[in-house]
Design a protein around this nucleic acid. Structure first.
Length: 711
DNA sequence: AAATTTTTAC
């Protein structure tokens, strides 16, 4: 302890001076020589000349030396200058020692800074500022604050520099209590008109998520500068109030304040996340007007905004401008195509990328995942693992989504192992994706183990995933019990209610479903379209069609999903005529039917025996509604013809299908033929059934080995 | 003399 480089050098210096009685060197010559080196920026030479001279130099030379040490982060030189100073100046001026503390702080040597500060026989306010700032800049917010409180106890007056550092530290530890106290002190010192302190207060209140106070502080700043505006825009964005972030940006334009490129990117992020294409376009115009269209950050943010807000053409136009192509803009473009479902084009662009980062791979993969293209996604993961060893928490989350979507619990377990081995276990997003995967793969055992292993750093999403796995196992009582358990720890979200209601719908427990509905009303939860759909579904599956209709009618807005819930609800309750009537109303409202709508309609036709109608509706799908009938629609038609004995039509239908009939279809046809005594078609079906060989189960091991564990 | 924000792509 205490034998740092400075003190060793100190000792050497003293020995040196004692032994060799060098004649007093001309101090002016030395000073001039050091000045020359300082002017040409060669710090090392300046310091070595100083170090060789056993005489003090004027204070301003030491000051310049320390400043250069600070800006070039030269710790060795800083130590040499300090040791020279304390050796040859009997009582070094305090302000020079303050410079030394600053230099140590800037070099990140907080221990040197602290030691010097503690050893100083006399300190002034600047010494306190220097050490507090060193701590606050060096990432030791708590230490900065504790030195500040020591300073206060000793009655040393703080100034704006002190407060700026302290507020910076408050913003790191997110202490609202402390921030308010410092705010009080600032007011008492009459410093609240200082722009920097004002902006810092906006910053710290915003970071503590007291956005109202942040805004009040902002409004009190007499002349907000570029940083002040940037902070308020950024804080609104982080609060999720994108509208206000954009509004503040335009206010800034009105106020003629100078923009920073970051302010543009913050405002554009706000536009992206609420799909505000029009506002984004206006911001683009501002960027052109103030000459920011060359700035890479602004350019990339603009490309990203257009790509996200559905203005892909605009994004491409910017992208095609010379000098606009880099990894980030490439990735934005690929992501724009991928997330809008144009995966083939996205992939083509992706393949053309001159350079890719892990984010580029993730963007492409996210596209496959979003559009449920599990096979493509899996192939893509394999080539990703072959091409690069880059992988991050986002990749892992996406791979887990693929596992969940394709119900591949084996691959999921491999990923789980990878997560353990590579230190991703502390990532809540990854762990929640693991929980979700086990839940969707119906691996309740693994879900439970993981959920309890996660202990108390789980969040609301973890609970939702966990409750979801019980719901999927039709254990709605346990799901409800877990819900009550959840309330001790966190607050539920709309997603929770959707999950619980689906669980109730699956096992037809009206009582619990009503409890959840009641809980939501009592606690003032907004019933959004998803939850409303789940409620309609639950009530109708629990045979409370009247409630279902009531919930349906209470909606201000009916989207196609809500209509579908209602249609299917009626269909499941044997109210086929109502289904067809509702379908008419739905079209009057101008809602475009989708494939689920037609499933409801066809089910209604089956229930009512409307064979003609069924046939017409089925044909209208592709003729009028541009919906390609899916497997389930073909199944409905086969059921319709089979149940009502339309065997000739059945034969015609099944033999003209654009794909091979499934085992289930053939079995149904076979049964229908037996019932309606139609041996010809029955024999045909029986023969086709015999051709089916037992399926070999999908083996992950036989695929090219990705071995997620080895990299 | 010194200090505040921000770091764009999943």
């Amino acid at each position: 302890m205490g034998m740092n480089a400075a003190s060793i050098l100190n000792g050497l210096l003293q020995k040196n001076t004692r032994r060799t009685r060098t004649p007093p060197t001309n101090s002016i010559t030395i000073t001039n020589s050091i000045k020359d080196h300082l002017n040409s920026g060669s710090l090392k030479k300046a310091v070595s000349i100083l170090f060789a001279a056993p005489v003090p130099v004027p204070s301003y030379i030491y000051a310049r030396l320390f400043n250069l040490c600070s800006s070039s982060r030269a710790i060795v030189e800083a130590r040499k200058v300090e040791s020279h100073l304390v050796t040859f100046c009997e009582r070094p001026p305090i302000f020079l020692l303050n410079r030394a503390i600053e230099a140590y702080g800037k070099c990140g040597c907080l221990e040197d800074a602290r030691e010097l500060f503690e050893e100083m026989p006399h300190r002034d306010g600047g010494s306190w500022n220097a050490i507090i700032n060193a701590y606050s800049q060096g990432g030791c917010a708590e230490k900065a604050i504790s030195v500040f409180s020591r300073m206060n106890k000793l009655g040393v007056a703080a100034n704006e520099i002190t407060f700026a550092s302290v507020l910076g530290s408050c913003a790191v530890i997110l202490s609202l209590f402390l921030s308010r106290q410092v705010h009080g002190l600032i007011i008492r010192c009459g410093l609240c008109w200082n722009v920097i302190l004002g902006s810092s207060l906006v910053d710290v209140y915003g970071k503590c998520r007291i956005i109202g106070d942040a805004r009040r502080m902002f409004d009190e700043i007499p002349n907000p500068n570029a940083v002040s505006w940037n902070v308020i825009v950024r804080r609104y964005l982080e609060m999720g109030d994108e509208r206000e972030a954009i509004t503040m940006f335009f206010k800034m334009v009105e106020a003629n304040a100078r923009q920073l490129n970051f302010t543009f990117s913050n405002a554009l992020i706000a536009c992206s996340s609420i799909f505000a294409l029009k506002e984004g376009y206006q911001i683009h115009n501002v960027a052109i007007k103030v000459g920011f269209e060359e700035d890479t950050v602004v350019m990339n943010s603009l490309i990203n905004m257009y790509a996200k807000c559905g203005g892909l053409e605009g994004a491409c136009r910017l992208f095609d401008q010379p000098g606009s192509k880099n990894v980030i803009s490439w990735t934005s473009i690929v992501s724009g195509y991928a997330t809008s479902g144009r995966t083939a084009e996205a992939r083509e662009l992706f393949n053309k990328m001159p350079e890719r980062s892990v984010v580029s791979w993730n963007a492409m993969l996210a596209g496959y995942v979003k559009f449920l293209l599990w096979e493509e996604a899996l192939d893509f993961v394999f080539s990703m693992r072959k091409t690069t060893k880059d992988i991050d928490h986002v990749t892992l989350t996406l791979i887990l989504n693929v596992c969940a979507g394709s119900l591949d619990v084996e691959l999921g377990k491999q990923v789980h192992g990878f997560v353990y081995r590579h230190g991703f276990f502390s990532d809540l997003f990854v762990c929640n994706a693991l929980l979700d995967m086990y839940g969707k793969c119906r691996s309740l055992r693994y879900s439970r183990v993981l959920f309890f292993e996660m202990g108390h750093w789980r969040d609301r999403v973890s609970w939702n995933a966990f409750i979801g796995s019980y719901a999927r196992h039709h254990q709605s009582e346990v799901a409800m019990e877990m819900f009550r358990e959840m309330l001790w720890e966190t607050t539920p979200s709309e997603f929770t209610f959707g999950t619980l209601l689906a669980a109730c719908a699956n096992i037809f427990t009206l009582k619990q479903g009503k409890q959840i509905h009641g809980y939501m009303i009592r606690n003032g939860y907004e019933i959004d379209l998803v939850v409303r759909g789940a409620l309609v579904d639950m009530y109708s599956k629990c045979r409370s069609l009247e409630y279902a209709i009531k919930v349906f009618n209470e909606a201000v807005l009916h989207d196609v999903i809500l209509w579908n819930s209602m249609l299917l609800g009626c269909a499941h309750n044997g109210r086929g005529v109502d289904v067809l009537e509702l379908f008419g109303l739905m079209q009057e409202e101008g809602i475009k039917a989708d494939h689920v709508t037609f499933q409801g309609i066809l089910l209604a036709c089956i229930g009512e025996g409307f064979v003609d109608h069924g046939r017409q509706y089925f044909n209208s799908m592709s003729d009028k509604f541009c919906i390609i009938p899916r497997l389930e629609h073909y199944e409905c038609m086969i059921e319709l013809f089979s149940r009502y004995g339309f065997i000739d039509e059945l034969e015609d239908f099944i033999k003209r299908m654009p794909f091979e009939p499934t085992v289930e279809m053939l079995t149904r046809v076979f049964d229908a033929c037996r019932e309606h005594e139609h041996s010809k078609l029955g024999e045909w079906a029986a023969q086709r059934l015999n051709e089916f060989k037992p399926l070999t189960p999908f083996q992950f091991e036989t695929l090219p080995e990705p071995d997620l564990g080895k990299l």
